[in-house]
Design a protein around this nucleic acid. Structure first.
Length: 934
RNA sequence: GCCGGAGUGGCGGAAUGGCAGACGCGACGGAUUCAAAAUCCGUUGCCCGCAAGGGCGUGUGGGUUCAAGUCCCACCUCCGGCACCA
């Protein structure tokens, strides 16, 4: 330390800015800088931290550990907006705080870099997505570093890195090679799938097909939103009112071969595991609703041959029932039945029509010649509606009669079959029995089309109404009449099962995940399609070997979509597209994976980002997981948790498992948010209902309402990074939606200026410690002020209440500013606390005070409890609960003492005179209340 | 429609059932200055009052309690999520 002491109590001149260690010198001497100038000190300390690897985390934690994870940002071309640094600053404060308390902290950052915007940019400009993505990442990295976040940058990853893509593709291979064992409730290698004898007997192709039907990753024909004019497939959100959001072009729903993930296999297990998770009930409920488990029954309705006479129908129906009674209920619905799912099999006698989804496979067959034109027109129109349109708008019921009937399995009566888009093809069996008297939607439908309404349930109490969807007692229900709903459902379920006409069933709102996109900028699938001699696909699929990974993206010059929904990769050169293996010719899969394929496991790769052997070393994972703090989106938690879970299960299955069964509960919850402080905040905080959405929309509102984007670069230039960080934390609790106010940044900047002046004399020409900075011991008053501040800030960081922590630091500065003696020891302690929030300024002040850098790794001060309590306290005195006076009493005075002191207070004595005191409540150390009469 | 969450000064927001409005912004006053900026020190919920003092105040209406922003009931408003899942 190059200090030149001019006089005992004279200002201390500092000719070097830092310390006496030459290797720590920040480089060229900076001109005298008596004013707080973040533009100088912030880059200086960022460079220092980088040079000294200040925030590098160990490979394995030593002692207490904290995995502090941020939202995985998509590096958009616009760079960071002011919404981003909020969560990032919060986690950075905790990271710095924990580090200073000696915790092993891992706090990484990376980029979720696949995605649509880069591709659209490529289409517009011809720039390859990789180029623009790398440029955008560079901007993001620069901006994040500019804000002084204490990331371990040596762990930076991007989902687009070939070394990362490799493992994303590898995970897919594991999923492809895994089936879900319902009995054991876990994934197992496909080779262990028991093959039924009937399948075995049918030959190798049948066995392969059977396996394919059980794999966690499988192909299916799923409807997508195809916009011919834009030449692209659109997400549901991009389709509004049947036309594309951009351009207003018509959109059709058409089935395309897609890759799916069989998450529904996990529905029960996920729901059960929710019980064991230590999450707020509201979040659990959200999750539970999302899984949407419902129980009920499947029932088959007999479909007579078209045009058969009444007698022939009766005959065939009788035969069918006999066969069913003998052969039981078939796994898959045969062609002669319409299978429906209902949660209320007790309303079977109230069925007045059947309704199938427009996409129902039997639709064409069930449509009679007379009705064909109307049904076709209806379904054509429905295909132009996205799922969103069908559900979003006013639920006006539409539909059309197919012209045919089925036979009621209990009454033998014919029931008309309609097509209506309020029935979703993707749920249950895609067909329902309509019971207008006891279902809102069916009631509306029946009213719209003048269908019969038959009441078969009456409320247990009160009057019967035209529409009653509650539970009650059965009427007009044949042998079941008189049963309550609770008795009826199991009874009829058992009867239907015995008769082979139906069975109890469970359904989920949760759907299997669509895992493929017809896009360029995503991970290619490590899958080959076998071709025959004519070059046509044989339908045989061959996964690549792990050694073949990563499959790179081909070089394309034209990223534009084509006239058909063929993915851009199908236009790749032959050298990429066609592959030979074992003398057979293959064509690569040309779909790509969705953005979340890479982003759902980023938190694992951070722990072991350069591992070439595995996607993560199990020992490392076991040591660092679970994530201790995550401030980000609930939606991300949803999908992250569940996909993470699914991949984990697949992973364990594939590798023989390294997580013992007993530990699964804890390890499975990949995004589990563990530390106590989060629980204290409960749902208000980290586990907000859908914080990601809220954060995004907040940023949107901020920028929209102000008419321009608030750019962090500009704020940092004007006020400094420390001021921006502090502002984001100070304006309110973390979970609240806060409007951006540039004036508020000025307020916290003033606070930082005041911190600066506690240490530096601004009136001198050169950088000079303030004359008040001394080596004296702090006074008792100073000790009290400091330790109270310290205790509050420490507790507030633990509960993530940064706004009140900052308020307390401001109070401390307000206290310290007029102090004529400001002991170096006290200032050092304050700067240590400040370092978690405004690290650049803190480092600078720390050095100026003569301590060895970095304060970022200095020990967090211990709270000395003896300074937290006064000898005396001032307590309120109330009469009838109204504040009338205050008295000063010893802090440890008992109830009788303070009561006496209160009664003796002149004003109280005057008010009590002539009144009868009925009761006195005296709480030691808190208050006294007199209850009087008269 | 269903499920959450929230309503406190001009504004952002504090407040284990025990002094409502910490802290900051804004506003006002003072010191400093030739003057201003900056800085420092004050005042600042509303109403009545020269003052001492008093009254009213946490979306609305009830309730529990010696005591309610905080707990209970009903309602209003806003925000968020889910939403034709049979």
């Amino acid at each position: 330390m190059l200090l030149c002491v001019v006089g005992a109590s004279a200002p201390i001149r500092i000719s070097g800015l830092l310390t006496d260690q030459p290797e720590l010198s920040p480089g060229p001497l900076i001109e005298p800088m008596p004013k707080y100038d973040p533009a100088l000190i912030e880059p200086k300390w960022q460079a220092w931290w980088a040079e000294h690897d200040t925030f590098r985390s160990p490979r394995l934690p030593a002692g207490r550990k904290a995995y502090i994870l941020d939202m995985f940002p998509y590096p958009s071309g616009d760079g960071l907006h002011v919404g981003h640094p909020e969560g990032y600053t919060a986690t950075d404060i905790v990271s710095r705080f924990e580090r200073m308390r000696g915790t092993s902290v891992i706090h990484p950052m990376g980029f979720d870099a696949f995605g649509l915007p880069a591709e659209e940019h490529a289409i517009r400009t011809g720039t390859p997505p990789r180029e623009s993505t790398e440029r955008n990442i560079a901007t993001f990295r620069r901006q994040l570093q500019m804000l002084g976040f204490s990331y371990d940058w040596s762990r930076e990853i991007a989902t687009t890195d070939p070394s990362y893509v490799r493992w994303t593709q590898w995970i897919f291979l594991v999923l492809y090679d895994t089936w879900f064992d319902r009995e054991q409730q876990r994934g197992r290698p496909i080779a262990e799938l028991p093959i039924p004898d009937v399948v075995k007997d049918a030959g190798e192709a049948a066995v392969a097909a059977y396996r394919d039907s059980r794999r966690l990753a499988y192909q299916s024909e799923a409807p997508v939103n195809w916009c011919p004019a834009l030449g692209t497939v659109l997400a549901n959100e991009e389709v509004i009112g049947g036309v594309s959001e951009r351009g207003g072009h018509p959109v059709v729903r058409l089935p395309l071969r897609q890759w799916m993930l069989r998450i529904t296999s996990y529905a029960d297990r996920l729901e059960q595991e929710l019980d064991s998770l230590d999450w707020p009930d509201s979040i659990k409920k959200l999750q539970r609703d999302w899984i949407g488990r419902s129980t009920g029954a499947e029932v088959d309705f007999f479909l007579p041959a078209a045009g058969a006479t009444e007698a022939a129908v009766a005959e065939a129906y009788g035969q069918w029932k006999q066969n069913r009674a003998a052969g039981g209920y078939p796994e898959e619905p045969p062609g002669d039945v319409l299978r429906i799912y209902t949660t209320r099999p007790d309303t079977l006698y109230g069925v007045t029509c059947m309704v199938i989804a427009p996409e129902h496979p039997l639709r064409v067959r069930l449509t009679t010649a007379d009705s064909a034109a109307a049904v076709e027109a209806y379904c054509e129109a429905a295909s132009h509606k996205s799922d969103l349109d069908r559900t979003d708008l006013a639920h006006e019921k539409t539909g059309v009669f197919t012209g045919s009937h089925c036979i009621h399995p209990l009454t033998g009566q014919p029931v008309p079959i309609w097509v209506a888009d309020y029935v979703l093809a993707s749920y249950g069996t895609g067909a329902i029995m309509s019971v207008p008297a006891h279902d809102d939607r069916d009631y509306e439908f029946a009213n719209t089309f003048g269908l019969e309404i038959i009441t078969v349930v009456e409320p247990l109490v009160g009057e019967s109404t035209a529409l009653f969807s509650g539970r009650g007692r059965a009427v007009a229900s044949g042998p079941y009449t008189g049963l309550t709903t609770e008795e009826f459902i199991p009874q009829v379920g058992a009867d239907l099962e015995a008769a082979g006409l139906g069975r109890p069933a469970v359904n989920y709102k949760l759907r299997d995940w669509l895992f493929s996109r017809q896009r360029f900028w995503g991970e290619p699938f490590p899958i080959l399609h076998e071709l025959d001699d004519a070059g046509e696909p044989t339908g045989v699929i061959r996964p690549l070997e792990p050694a073949d990974l990563p499959v790179p993206l081909p070089e394309l010059t034209d990223f534009r979509p084509g006239q058909t929904p063929d993915p851009p990769l199908s236009r790749a050169g032959d050298d990429w597209l066609f592959v030979e293996r074992d003398g057979k010719r293959y064509r690569r899969e040309t779909n790509t994976m969705p953005q979340w394929a890479g982003s759902c496991w980023y938190y694992l790769r951070f722990l072991d980002p350069t591992n070439d052997e595995r996607f993560i070393d199990p020992a490392i994972e076991q040591a660092w997981m679970p994530v201790d703090l995550y401030v980000g989106g609930g939606r991300l938690v949803n999908q992250g948790m569940i996909l993470g879970e699914m991949e984990f299960t697949g992973y364990r299955a594939a590798t023989g498992g390294w997580v013992s069964a007993g530990e699964q509960g804890a390890a499975d919850a990949a995004m589990k948010i563990a530390p106590d402080q989060v629980e204290k905040q409960g749902e208000h905080f980290v586990l907000r209902d859908a914080p990601q959405v809220r954060v995004e929309s907040r940023a949107y509102k901020m920028s929209k309402s102000r008419g321009n984007v608030v750019n962090p670069d500009q704020i940092v230039r004007e006020f400094g990074a420390d001021a921006l960080r502090l502002y984001e934390m100070f304006m309110g609790p973390l979970e609240a939606t806060k409007p951006w106010s540039t004036a508020g940044v000025g307020g916290v900047r003033t606070f930082l200026d005041r911190c600066w002046r506690l240490v530096v004399d601004e009136n001198e020409d050169s950088l000079t410690l303030a004359a008040q900075v001394t080596d004296a011991e702090p006074t008792d008053e100073q000790q009290r002020a400091f330790h109270r501040m310290l205790a509050k800030v420490t507790a507030d960081i633990e509960s993530l209440s940064f706004n009140t922590a900052i308020a307390k630091m401001m109070e401390f500065v307000n206290f310290a500013t007029p102090q004529q003696q400001r002991p170096r020891k006290m200032l050092g302690g304050f700067v240590t606390v400040l370092a978690a929030f405004a690290p650049h300024l803190a480092e600078e002040l720390w050095s100026l005070l003569g301590f060895a850098a970095p304060v970022s790794l200095a020990a967090w001060p211990e709270v000395e409890a003896c300074w937290l309590y006064d000898q005396t306290v001032e307590i309120p005195v109330q009469i009838q609960g109204k504040l009338r006076a205050r008295v000063v009493v010893p802090a440890d005075a008992d109830a009788a003492t303070i009561e006496a002191a209160a009664a003796a207070e002149p004003k109280i004595a005057a008010l009590l005179a002539g009144k009868q005191v009925i009761k006195v409540i005296a709480v030691p150390g808190r208050m006294v209340n007199f209850v009087v009469k008269g």
